[in-house]
Each structure stands twice: as structure tokens, then as C-alpha cells.
Design a protein around this nucleic acid. Sequence first.
DNA 1: AGGTTGATTGACTCATCAATCAATAAAAAT
DNA 2: ATTTTTATTGATTGATGAGTCAATCAACCT
Lengths: 188, 188
Amino acid sequence: MPRMGQEPKRRAALLAATVEEVGLAGTLDVTVGQIARRAGMSPALAHHYFGGKADIFLAAMRQILTDYGAEVRAALRTAPEGRRLEALIAANFSESCFAPATVSAWLNFYVLARRDAQAARLLRVYQARLRSNLVHALQPRAAAPQLAARRIAALIDGVYLRAALSGEGVAGAAEEVIAAAHALADIR
Amino acid sequence: MPRMGQEPKRRAALLAATVEEVGLAGTLDVTVGQIARRAGMSPALAHHYFGGKADIFLAAMRQILTDYGAEVRAALRTAPEGRRLEALIAANFSESCFAPATVSAWLNFYVLARRDAQAARLLRVYQARLRSNLVHALQPRAAAPQLAARRIAALIDGVYLRAALSGEGVAGAAEEVIAAAHALADIR
DNA sequence: AGGTTGATTGACTCATCAATCAATAAAAAT
DNA sequence: ATTTTTATTGATTGATGAGTCAATCAACCT
């Protein structure tokens, strides 16, 4: 069985398994053993490829943010000029970003960011990017883009949070946030 | 030293210590020993008064919600008729609710609610109460109170979340949410 | 063939902690 | 005075889980 060049596959499998496991458990209190088993390998191998548990979590968070970034970039690229705001919000509530396990993992990484400086930095990157994207999208249509962006960002996070907690279907969440965003954009 | 009627004091001390410790650590990964030490007693005594760790957390969460409920009720009682909405939002961002440790503890209890059914129930009570209060306050001034309430509730949670994460000063948060809420109330 | 390197794991170590328990001490009750 | 009740803790137990290490195995290179 053991062939060469397994590293990328193993790493990817571990990251996916981490998100799944954290999402399923609803907590970062998952053992390396659980993650490794789900990824189809021994705990020792997980330690071999990543230094330790913290590194695994961090890498998983980075992965989620990367995926999110790609999703957003793709959405903005294909959006018509005047509908950047709508596309941006829709991307934030896209299927891939909104898979239950992913949302739950997000929430837990939020908490991780309170302890871990590196996680906090990652999160700040995400927040800055979201804000910047929002400001850009709001530029031509809002009286006070910076202000509106801050509010809409908070709204997005809030809806996310509620989704993560109530576990209820989030169908229509994007549309609702878009409607609310239109109202928020017009504040003077 | 050992006198009678210590139980209430000890319980209260443990709950306060729990919030402080969880808030400080930024995680529920605090030991009973840490909590007990901060409350000025041995770990064994903590186990004596509460059944176990889970019970301590649950009681602490209940305490936070009780305090929050009292704060809100007081604010609504003294608010003039036409300013219920503003008073309600202000109460949600009051000093006591917004102490850093408290906010951090909230966030972690949010996460706890994903695993623990009892915690989830408590959280649902809070959410229902907030929504009901918002609907009531919006009744005379919003076209669609239910809808607006849902959005404003999400916004409040979102701002809370951001405050918990960025640790930045939240001065003026209430005013900003109030302004946004006015805009959100007018959606048809 | 023989050696090097990456892949892989079982077994082990070490630390941490929740929970228990028996023992002690002080008040209250009789 | 002695019995009961409440308060309190030190010491212990038992489980769990992160991280390490030496050993195995297969491919690749020379």
C-alpha cells in the first residue's frame, strides 16, 4: 500500500475530517484519534504530517477561509456591475459555505480565535476582506459605505450565528439579508 | 471556620468564578480546580455543591440569562411608551451585559448549546424572549414587526459576536444598532 | 542485491482532570 | 455531653488523550 506522494492527499483528508468532526461534535473537543480515524489513518500519522493538534485546527481554519475566499472571488467575477452587493451576500450564504458542519466549525474557530493569536489573525483577515468587499460594492449606491459595510457585516455574522445555533433551515437567508442590506445602505 | 448556611454563598461564588474563568480563558476548557480556586475553595467542594462540571456550566449560563432578563425588564419598565425599542437595544448593550468576561462566556455558552440539550433550551428561551420583546416594541411603528424583529435580533447577535472577537471597545454600539434598527423597521 | 527514503502504525509515556471518599472540624440539636 | 448535621479538604482513583518512538513495509535509486 504505502506509495509515494501521499502527503498532499493525507493532509487534505485530515483537514476535511477535522471540519466534519468538529462540525458534528459541535466543539473543538475532538481527539486527534477521531479525526485520524475519519480520515482513514492512525493518530500517529496525523501527528507526523501536522505537528500537533493546534496545527491541524489552524490548517483547517485556513482551508475554510481559502474556500470561502475562492467562493466570493468567483461570485464577484461573474456578477454584473450593479449587483455586486447582492452577489457578495449570496456568496456568503452559498451552499458550500453553509453546510451545517462548516457553519459549526466556523463558530468554533471563532471561539478558538479568542485564545490563539494565529487564529485571531486569520479571522481578522477574513473580516477585513469582507468589509473591503462590502465597501467596494456599496461605493456607488450608499451614502456612507464604511458605516453601512460595518452594519451589513455584523448582520451577516448574526444570521450565521443564528443558523449555527438553531440548526434550522437557512433557505432564504441570503434574500432576507439582501433586503435588509438595502435598507441599511440608505442610512445617512 | 465552617459555619452553617454557606451553600448560597458558595454557589454564587462558584458561578461568578465560572463566568470570570471562562471569560478569561476564552474557552470552556477550564478545570473545576481553576474555578474552585478562584472562588476560594477546594475542587472537592465545588463537586459537593454542584453535581459535576456540566451542572456548574449550566447553572452559570442560567445565571447569566437571569441577570440579562432582569436588566431588560428593568429597562423596559422605566422606558417611556414610545421608546421601547431604543431601551430594549440599549439594555442588550448595557455595561453589565457587555463586560468582556460576560461576552466571552456568552459566546462559549453558545457553543455549548450545540452539544448540550439543556443549554440549547436555555438559549432558545433567551432568543424567544428577545424576539417577543422586539415584536412588542416594534408593533406600533413597523410595517412588519415579525420580520423586522428577526433582523434586528440577528443584528444584535452579530454586533455582540464581533465585540466578543475583536475585543475592541464597544462604545457606541447601542447607538449604532438603534440607528440601523430604525432603518430595518421600515422595510415593507 | 543493497541502501535510502517516505509511509505507516502499535505500543508506550506522561500529564491532566473529573469524580470519589474517607477523615476532620465546627456548629446545632438533643 | 453526645449526637447529628453541615462544611470542608487531602489524597486517591480511573480514564482519557496528546505526543513520541522504534519498528515495519514498500517503493525507488544505484
